[in-house]
């Protein structure tokens, strides 16, 4: 202990006897910090587990979206194209040949299924295509 002069001794005696009442909110602040420590969970360099989980989710989501966009066969990836086409005016393809569709049918016309039940029906004159 250092050698104190009489003034220092007296001052020390008086100063160590000082008391001050803290504000009530001080204990609340301590309690909040204690609660936070208790329920805060572990952290590595201030990084919480939920932060890591959120980052992983974000990376996984971005990867999936990128893969879907690059996959041309995926209908979800093409969906936006169809929406754009709907808003555009309809223009038939220049090389459209209706004949191609009729080639598959017998005698170059519509394929008519001759059902046994309707074989004896006669089509009314006004509904006939060819006379």
């Amino acid at each position: 202990m250092a050698n104190f002069d009489p003034f220092e001794k007296e001052f020390r005696r008086q100063a160590t006897g000082l008391r001050r009442t803290p504000a009530s909110r001080s204990w609340n602040r301590i309690e909040r910090r204690l609660d936070k420590r208790r329920g805060g969970g572990s952290s590595i360099l201030g990084i919480r587990p939920w932060m890591i989980a959120a980052l992983l989710l974000l990376v996984a989501g971005t990867t999936i979206m990128t893969k879907m966009a690059s996959d041309r066969n995926n209908p979800l990836a093409q969906r936006s194209q169809f929406i754009e086409e709907l808003s555009a005016p309809y223009t038939p393809m220049e090389n459209f040949e209706p004949v191609e569709y009729l080639n598959g049918a017998p005698d170059g016309g519509e394929e008519i299924i001759q059902d046994a039940d309707f074989r004896d029906f006669v089509v009314s004159r006004e509904y006939r295509v060819n006379g």
């Binding site: 000082l18 008391r19 001050r20 009442t21 504000a23 001080s26 602040r29």
Partner: peptide, 23 residues
Amino acid sequence: SPVMLAVARRYTARDADAEDVLV
């Protein structure tokens, strides 16, 4: 806390700083 607040207050010039130190 009453003794320690007085200790903190002897070092800091402001009451608010002393309360922060105490907490």
